[in-house]
Design a protein around this nucleic acid. Structure first.
Length: 519
RNA sequence: GGUUCCGUAGCUCAGCUGGAUAGAGCAACAGCCUUCUAAGCUGUGGGUCCCAGGUUCGAAUCCUGGCGGAAUCACCA
């Protein structure tokens, strides 16, 4: 039984004996003592005041005395207004430390036997490299998976790669027209970067065409984009792709493989991985089956032009397209399919989607449509929505070249770790590989903590001009604290080995560590 | 316009299942390296918790209504 529960049941027992009354569940709760006060746990006594017919201070004192008598682990109590602060004894903490210091599973719960959780995250497009927004996504997804695992869940991490559609055709077209057979090897460029370059090249050439059209015809920019020859060529390429044209799919396969090689490097730097990778090109047809099922059930309706719709609400009228009039699928169609797939593949009990908050509405719709289909996994869908990473000037915009590239950011962080560490000069006796590992751990620790410390649902600000800090409330600070604590534990361990009781005398710990222990 | 989310110190953010004097880091200032490790510690200054009502013994926290910002409302993904 945890010591908190022993304290609570002692309070319950004391009040029961004294007044013959049961304490309301809600009032019977301990909170952590705020660090400006002395103590480990705090009981708020206001709810008990009426019962005792005493002032809050006197009530707290009575309960405190009872605890001192009844619970041996309680070492001291103090009362501030209506708050009873309880300090556990040094003996309790020494025992706790002795028991837990060699527990490798400290903080981890064993598997609870529940159905697995499937966490989807990352979900990149294959036409450009990963940027800071993806970094937030990847770190959130990976962390949530780790946290769930630590809490006793079986977790499967999955990635859904958006590898088809007009965007990848644009990169392909630019490579075919202007690439001269270039490859990552011949260009000496990371695969995803190279493909991204061609995507940018396409946009550049397209803009030139658009400029010419708007200068020589009365068309506006939006119409000019649709009229531009390059756009028509990209559309043609998409049609060819969908018809499984051999040459087109060969280029598609080749360029995607470059991108995946590039992504793998970035994922490795970020320290994230996946149990299974889905490709939209392989799953988008599945959703159509569910649409057909919905039509049969009468949950959806087909219009005269052949398109399929679902009505989510009547007032206000909210209708969503599920299948185009030409029978091709839209975004949500494939998400219907992938939900089913995950449920089948893993026997999932929960489906978590780490996706930006711009898709809040999309996931509301997805859930409602699955409910209409009466799917058992409809209510398993949880959208872990997160906010944008903004720059001081506002949103990241690829057109303005303000996108913060993931690889460059990672390199910069590790570089900063290197220069800062070398300046401090504590690593003379480190080997080269130890040094590199240290820089990696420090730089990535700083980046990860910087991103993860912000509430996911909030937009967050990243200022590229001020590099991510290594001092203060940062990852390296926590790493430093960890190192200090390990050092203290080593000391405690030595005393244990010598057969001396586990009692670290205050004189042996300097003031800095004592402060550290209070945290 | 509808819907969802956000609004806390000069800046970046905690705190939000109601509880103490609203915290941390950065920035500014003043101190601390013969003790195990100063990527640290101690102290000073800095707040209409967007505004107004309501519920409550008690509201940054819950409810209602405003104001400001973001996202979204495609036969795009």
């Amino acid at each position: 039984m945890k010591v908190e529960n022993r304290i609570l049941s002692a309070i319950e027992g004391f009040i029961g004996e004294k007044f013959g009354e049961k304490v309301p569940e809600q009032a019977l709760a301990l909170q952590k003592t705020r660090k400006e006060f002395e103590g480990d746990f705090t009981l708020v006594v206001f709810p008990f005041v009426k019962l005792f017919r005493l002032s809050p201070e006197q009530t707290a004192a009575e309960i405190g005395n009872a605890l001192l008598e009844r619970v041996p682990e309680v070492g001291a109590v103090n009362v501030v207004k209506g708050f009873l602060n309880i300090s556990l004894s040094g003996g309790f903490w020494a025992g706790f430390l002795g028991q837990e210091m060699n527990n490798e599973h400290f903080g981890f719960r064993p598997f609870d036997g529940s159905q697995p959780v499937v966490v989807e995250y990352s979900s990149p497009n294959t036409n450009k490299p990963l940027h800071l927004g993806h970094v937030r996504n990847n770190l959130l997804g990976f962390s949530v998976a780790r946290i769930l695992e630590a809490s006793g869940k079986k977790v499967f991490k999955v990635n859904l790669v958006n590898d088809r559609g007009i965007h990848i055709c644009k990169s392909m077209l630019a490579w075919m027209k202007y690439g001269h057979g270039e490859t990552p090897e011949t260009a000496g460029r990371k695969g995803d970067k190279l493909v991204g370059d061609f995507y940018v090249r396409f946009e550049k050439e397209l803009r030139a065409q658009v400029a010419e059209i708007t200068a020589t015809t009365p068309l506006g920019e939006e119409d000019a984009r649709k009229e531009a020859p390059l756009m028509a060529e990209a559309q043609e390429l998409l049609v060819k792709w969908e018809q499984n044209d051999a040459e087109t799919t060969a280029v598609w396969r080749k360029m995607n493989s470059w991108v995946y090689q590039g992504f793998d490097v970035t994922y490795k730097s970020l320290g994230v991985d996946f149990d299974k990778v889905y490709y939209e090109s392989g799953t988008y047809i599945l959703g159509k089956e569910l649409v057909r099922e919905g039509l049969e059930k009468g949950a959806f309706e087909r219009r005269s032009d052949g398109s399929v719709w679902v009505t989510l609400s009547v007032d206000p009228l909210d209708e969503k397209l599920l299948l185009r009039s030409d029978g091709t699928s839209v975004y949500i169609t494939q998400d219907l399919g992938t939900a089913q797939l995950r449920y089948d593949d893993f026997g999932a009990g929960k489906l978590i989607y780490v996706v930006g908050n711009e898709q809040n509405y999309h996931f509301d719709v997805l859930k409602k449509v699955l409910q209409k289909l009466e799917k058992p996994y409809a209510n398993m869908v949880f959208h872990l929505s997160y906010g944008m990473v903004d720059l001081p000037e506002g949103k990241m915009k690829s057109r303005e070249g303000t996108v913060v590239d993931a690889d460059e950011l990672i390199d910069e962080m590790i570089g900063t770790a290197r220069s800062t560490t070398e300046e401090l000069g504590k690593i003379q006796d480190f080997s080269e590989s130890e040094k590199e590992e240290l820089f990696q751990v420090l730089g990535m620790g700083a980046l990860k903590y910087f991103i993860l410390k912000v509430d996911p649902k909030k937009n967050m600000l990243f200022n590229p001009a001020e590099s991510i800090d290594f001092n203060g409330n940062t990852g390296p600070f926590i790493q430093y604290t960890h190192a200090r604590i390990r050092s203290i534990l080593r000391m405690a361990g030595e005393e244990l080995v010598e057969g001396i009781s586990l009692n670290i005398s205050p004189e042996k710990i300097n003031i800095r560590e004592r402060n550290l222990l209070r945290r």
